[in-house]
Write a protein that binds this DNA or RNA. Structure first.
Lengths: 218, 218
DNA sequence: CCGAGGCCTAAACCGAGGTATGAGCCGGCC
DNA sequence: GGCCGGCTCATACCTCGGTTTAGGCCTCGG
């Protein structure tokens, strides 16, 4: 059985090439998919079971998963849920030889990119993988933006966050002051600090960042 | 065959009771579903074919569609696409006796709420219908909010919209003035009109409304 | 103990936001 | 023609936002 370290080196440089992780208990299927995926210039990583994948630590690359729904020891659908708990958020393309409709519907509801019945056309798999990678790219981009925002927000002191909340809610400095029992001038100071730390120069931008952070519930 | 006017009156008052529209060419299936849906207190409307549904004009109620994928004259999936063009945005629950996985995946990708293989358990159908209605309720709520915003936005004159765009982009009045070749005081007037017509009293609220409207691309 | 950092405040000043009053120009419509 | 509405501008006045300078209080940790 192909072990965890079955990455094909030649097409897996440490660059930012998208990585397609293939999990199937049939070595022939793995190799076939490996060839297919690498034919469009993507890196691959092969596993014979979910356990092998979990023991290995995946590089943090843009990519996706190709899973057979019938896997050794666990259902592909349960594995899908398990991966989410492990913080592995790679988009998943399912394939199956003996699947049924409820299975496919459940997978799609749980966020799978596609669900292909074997035998599938090569092009269908490539389309699915391409879509999955694009989805992952988007997710990472969104995630990075949110992380950056949160990093800025976390440099704020408790008071500054409190003031920021009221400011983006549309209150005037004097109202904020009255609300939390401060002098207006102090609110101005905090407000200025917020603008500087959040890296914005207009209230409009601050409001947008606050929205993206999910603040300003009032 | 049951005609377009087969609505069961007793459980279909003109109130805001959610409406479940059932399309199936088998009268027995329609009646069975009708009983099931009405058992949980929802109104129903039965059709034997997509054509009948399209000829009829549906009341504008919260609700959903239950479609067989195998319909007279057209595939349920094609009908799904066709309905979207007709502006009928009701969430769809598919059911099928002879469906396959690609069909279910295509339906789910196209936004179906669920895809049930016959025979299905009554409870599964009720769960799907409940979820579909909830989705429709949410969609209508979002849509109504956006329509209200657009109505306000449309009361703005071209100049006012132009000024609004720059203001929510975070520019100062004098910058806006320089950018579109006006005096600062005129910008202030327009800005004041924008605030009044858009029904907001703080810049923060204006920015949020602009975001919801998809303005402020810069 | 003392420095650092968070927190609060004040006085003073300036730039920006907002409104009212008044007025002129132009194009479309009855 | 006359009216209306959109658009423009000016003066004046007031409020609000924002920064600087300067100071005091507290707590935590070296």
């Amino acid at each position: 059985m192909t072990g965890p370290n079955s990455t094909r080196g030649a097409s897996t440089p440490s660059s930012a090439l998208p990585l397609v992780v293939i999990v199937d208990d049939d070595a022939a299927v793995r190799d076939s998919l490996d060839s297919l995926i690498r034919s469009i210039g993507l890196a691959t990583r092969l596993y014979g079971s979910p356990a092998e994948l979990l023991q290995d630590k995946l590089p943090d690359l843009v990519g996706c998963l190709i899973l057979d729904v019938r896997l050794p020891g666990i259902s592909g659908l349960d594995f899908q849920a398990q991966l989410a708990k492990h913080g592995i958020l790679l988009p998943i393309v399912f394939m199956t030889g003996h699947g049924d409709i409820p299975m496919s519907v459940r997978a799609m509801k749980a966020g799978a990119v596609d669900f292909l019945a074997k035998p599938f056309r090569d092009q269908d798999m490539l389309d699915a993988v391409t879509a999955a990678i694009e989805r992952d790219r988007q997710r990472r981009s969104d995630s990075a933006a949110r992380d950056g925002l949160r990093a800025e927000y976390e440099t704020l002191t408790p008071r500054e966050r409190e003031v920021m909340g009221h400011v983006v809610a549309g209150l005037m400095n004097k109202q904020v002051a009255g609300l939390i029992g401060l002098s207006e001038i102090t609110v101005k100071i905090h407000r200025g600090n917020v603008m500087r730390k959040m890296g914005v120069r207009s209230l409009a931008d601050l409001v947008r960042k606050a929205e993206a952070l999910g603040i300003a519930r009032n």
